[in-house]
């Protein structure tokens, strides 16, 4: 039962990264790719009706994590206190700037919200990547299962690191580049004309950086936490995951060159999913490793909630996810295809 809930939470987090990832990516590219007000509108419209639903995966995933692993939730959320609060502020800034931009037809106001939208998107990507890297690297969990991390110390990986050290910065860069590429590929499916061209071109350049940082991050991960490879070595079939990562990278490149934007975007979805699945596989059955002593790891067994709750939870969760999948299918079907360049006013 613990394994089921581990993968349920993992899948929900992956759904969040894949879905909210592309609208965060569009935010990162916003000042880079948009030359005119028209471009900015198209970029905003491309995510307008869906970003809020995408972000819900973070909340639903977080709620499910709390439900299934209360100890992990309590320990990780209080230990990552400062970065989580910063993530909250970024989420607030981002959501508000998207919504308020639609209500303000004044250029000064719009520039302000455009700036906040870009900054919060870029920093969110970096913080989310660094957060994941923190979980992979491990944190100094105490005997009472709690810890507290400062934002940075000496930037070194050690038993008592900060949130940001050289390793987690790499994690942040992976997320930043991956989501920028992801966003560009998404935008290429939604935009037309020059904007589509610029997005496609950008994704091809970013792809090189993505390949490089992926390799660097994989090597760094093995260096920082050698036990990541344990599960892989014990079950060599799992090496299929890194193979899929590489294939998805090739897929992005190939489809992008053929101008099959949707397939390239789906390859990018596969890339993000496999990177996350790979990280989770390396962790399993630990949910939060200790940087001090492997015996202090928070594991599935230590943190799983009561048996009755996990059983009854499985029933409503499956039912709820069927509904959610239906909503998403409907929503993406309704808003399928290219964003129009119709210059009519933007709003509800």
């Amino acid at each position: 039962m613990g394994a089921i809930w581990f993968w349920i939470v993992a899948v929900m987090i992956a759904a969040y990264v894949v879905l909210d990832g592309f609208d965060i990516g569009v935010g990162i590219l916003y000042p880079l790719l948009a030359r005119t007000e028209e471009d900015r509108r198209v970029m905003m419209r491309s995510i307008g009706p869906v970003w809020d639903g995408n972000e819900v995966w973070l909340l639903a995933g977080g709620g499910t994590l709390y439900f299934a692993f209360p100890l992990l939730y309590a320990s990780a959320f209080s230990g990552f206190y400062l970065p989580l609060m910063i993530v909250l502020w970024l989420l607030i800034g981002r959501g508000v700037s998207i919504e308020l931009r639609m209500h303000m037809d004044n250029a000064v106001w719009r520039s302000l919200f455009d700036g906040i939208f870009f900054l919060s998107s870029a920093l969110l990507a970096i913080f989310l990547g660094a957060a994941l890297a923190n979980v992979v690297r491990g944190v100094p969990i105490g005997a009472d299962q709690y810890f507290f991390l400062p934002l940075w110390t000496n930037w070194q990986v050690g038993p008592h690191p900060g949130i940001l050290d050289w390793y987690t910065v790499i994690g942040g860069l992976v997320a930043f580049i991956a989501l920028a590429t992801h966003g560009a590929l998404y935008l290429a499916t939604k935009a037309t004309g020059e904007l589509e061209e610029r997005a496609a071109k950008f994704s091809q350049k970013a792809w090189i950086a993505l390949c490089a940082i992926t390799v660097v991050s994989l090597i760094a991960t093995v260096l920082v936490r050698r036990s990541t490879l344990d599960n892989y070595n014990n079950h060599p079939i799992l090496f299929a995951i890194p193979v899929l990562v590489v294939s998805s990278l090739i897929g992005i490149r190939t489809f992008s060159a053929r101008r099959e934007h949707l397939k390239a975007f789906l390859s990018s979805c596969l890339y993000l999913t496999m990177m996350l699945v790979g990280a989770c596989t390396g962790l399993y059955p630990t949910v939060l490793p200790s940087s001090v002593d492997a015996a202090g790891d928070i594991t599935i067994a230590k943190s799983l909630t009561g048996t009755y709750a996990t059983h009854v939870g499985l029933i409503w969760w499956a039912f709820g996810m069927l509904l959610a999948a239906g909503y998403f299918a409907m929503s993406y079907w309704m808003f399928r295809g290219k964003v129009s360049t119709d210059p009519d006013g933007y709003g509800h």
């Binding site: 639903a60 709620g63 709390y66 299934a68 409503w316 959610a324 909503y327 409907m330």
Partner: peptide
């Protein structure tokens, strides 16, 4: 959170799964 999560984690997770998806999708529409 640690001590009561076994009980109130349930309604909080259900809120995400049953309400937020519903709300956000249909608000978009």
């Amino acid at each position: 959170a640690r001590r009561t999560g076994g009980v109130i984690g349930q309604p909080l997770a259900m809120e995400g799964v049953f309400s937020f998806f519903l709300e956000s999708t249909f608000l978009g529409l």
